[in-house]
Design a protein around this nucleic acid. Sequence first.
RNA 1: GCCGAUGUGGCUCAAUGGUAGAGCGACUCUUUCGUAAAGAGUAGGUUGUGAGUUCGAUUCUCACCAUCGGCUCCA
Length: 583
Amino acid sequence: MEKKEKLDNLRHSSAHLLAAAVLELYPEALPAIGPSVENGFYYDFDQLKISAEDLPRIEGKMQEIAKTWNSFEKLEVTADQAKSDFVSNPYKQELIEELEKEGKSITLYKSGNFTDLCRGGHTPHPKNDLKYFKLLKIAGAYWRGNEKNKMLTRIYGTAFPTKKELEDYLHLLEEADKRDHRKLGRDLDLFTFSELVGAGFPLYTPRGGIIRRELNNFIEDLQSRVGYQQVWTPQVAKAELFKVSGHYDKYKNDMFNVVSHYSEEEFFLKPMNCPQHTQIYAAKQRSYRDLPLRLTDFAMLYRDEKPGELNGLARVRSFSQDDCHIFCTEEQVDNEIDTALQMIKKVMATFGFSYRYRLSTRDREHPEKYLGQPEVWDKVEKWAEKIMQRNKIDFFIAEGEAAFYAPKMDLMATDALGREWQLSTVQIDFVMPERFGLNYTDRDGSLKIPVMIHRAILGSSERFLMILLEHFAGAFPVWLSPVQAVILPIADRHLNYALKLNENLLKNSIRSEIDERAETLSAKIRDAQLQKVPYMLVVGDEEEKSERVAVRSRDRGDLGKMPLQKFLEEIKMEIGDKKLRSA
RNA sequence: GCCGAUGUGGCUCAAUGGUAGAGCGACUCUUUCGUAAAGAGUAGGUUGUGAGUUCGAUUCUCACCAUCGGCUCCA
C-alpha cells in the first residue's frame, strides 16, 4: 500500500473517531461527512454548538474510545436498511439516496459502538494506530460546499502514525507563523493598512515601494524585449463598456460604483484592463500586418471583495496586475503563448519558486455560466492542454475554474501555511474580440476576428509580494532588498568617513544607509540582521586609515576588509545577475 | 456574505465591576564601543467605535468597524 494511502486511511479513521466522540458528548449532533484532506481530516456536523475550548474535551473522549476499537467492520446493506439506520439524519439520507440513484453499493463501517455510512478506507488496527492525533480548529462550512445550503460546524484535526511526526507537524505550523507576510511586512516596514483608508487597501511604505518598483521594472524590461507595448488606461469607465464585455452581468456587485454628478450614466472603477484594451485595438482599422499587437498595462485595479474574503496582501480590494493582452491571428497563438510561458518560467526561476500549473476548464454541468460556443470551448480547452504538453509543463485539470470567457492556464504558488494562490495566468479568448466587434483585414482583403490572449506573469504585485516575503522569510536577494547595504560606524569620529562612503554608494545606485545611532557595534549588527539587510559595512579606525570597509554579509558572516571599489564591483554583479543568494 | 474567534500605548503581552502595568521600541542624557541587545531617565493609553445595564464599565450585553482561521466567491 502506498504511504499516502495509508496516511489517508489513518486520517479518515480519525474522522470516524471524532464523530464517535462528538456523538457521545453531544448526542443531538448530526454527523454529515468526514473525509481526510491534505494535512489531516475534518468532520462536519449539524446541531453542534461548541467553541475551541471544547476541543480538548472531545480529544480526550477520542483517546478513550480509540482504546475500544479493534477493527472497522464492513456491512453491506440495502438502501432502505441504511435509510432506517440513519432515519433522523437528513444529510446521510441525502447521501444514501444519491448512492441509490447512481446504483452504487451502500456500505457501513462499524467500529466499537459507532457505525457510519462510508465507502471505506480505514486503518486495520484502530486500537494501535489511532493515538497521535490533534484537533486543530473549528470552522463553518456549507453543506456540500454550496452557499445556499445550511452552514455546518466543521472540526479540523490532523493525525500521524508516530508521535514525532505529529510534533514535527505542529512545530512546522509554528514556524510558518514566523514567515507570515503580514508580520514580516510590518517588521520590515514594507506596507501597512489603515482603518481610515479601508479594509483591503494596502499602503506601501517607502521600503515596500522600492520592492514594488523593482518587480515592475523587471517585468517591464522583459516585456519590452519581446515586443510588448505599454499603454495606459483610466481608472474609471462607463457601465456600457462592461455590459459589452459581459463583466457587468457577471460581476456588477463586485465592482465599485462611481457616481458622476453631471451624468445619469453609471460608472465603475475598473476591475480589469481587458475591455479598455479592446478599445485601443478598435481605435483604428487593423491589418494582419499589425498583428500580433501586444498591449501591457500595470494599472491599479479595484474589486469590491466580500469582507470575509480579504486576507493580508493575498486578497485585497486594490491591486495592480502586470496585465497584457495580445491580439493576434489564430496561427500566431501558439508562438505567442510559448513566449509567454517561457517568460513566466524565467521569472519564477529568478525567484526560485516552486509551483504547479492548473488548467482551469469550464463546469460542464453549468454551461449558462459561460459565454461563447461550446464547440469553441472544446477546441480551446484541448488546445491549451496541447500547449502545456508541448512546453513540458506538469498540470492538473480543475473543472469549473475557467473564466466566463475562456479556459485558463494558471500558475499556482504556495504560501507559508500551504495554501495555494494563483499568480500567473494565460488565456486564449475567442469571446471578447467578437463581443467588441474587433477585426482586421487579412491578406486576401477579407475581415477577420482576432484572437485575444490574456496574460499576467506576477498576477498581482500584492499577492506576488506576499509569496516573495514568505518564500524568502523577508531575506530578499540583493537586487530586491530595500536597503542593500548599511554602513556601521564604530564611533562618532568615523561618521565623516561613513558619509563619504555612503555618498559613493548612492552615486553607484546602491541603496545604502548609515546607522548613526549611539549604539554598540553589536547592537547595530543585530538590528541590521533582523532587518535582513544583505550587507553591513563596518568602519572604524583601521578601515578609515587604510581606506577600506569591513564587509559582513547577512548570509555568510564576516567577509573581511576590502577597498570600497571591490565591494562595489561585487555587489553590482550580484544585483545585475539578480542572484538568488550571494555565492 | 456565512460560521467561529480576537481587538489594552508603535510591537509582544499582563491585570481588574471601583477610570490600567511590564518588556521591547521611541525620545533625552551618559557611554565612543570591533561583528546578534551598553546604562540611566522621560514621554506615550478617553483599553477598536457607538449605545445599553450599573451608583460606577476597559471588564457584562447589543450593534458597528477591523483583524485572524475556515466556508463560499475570485474576471
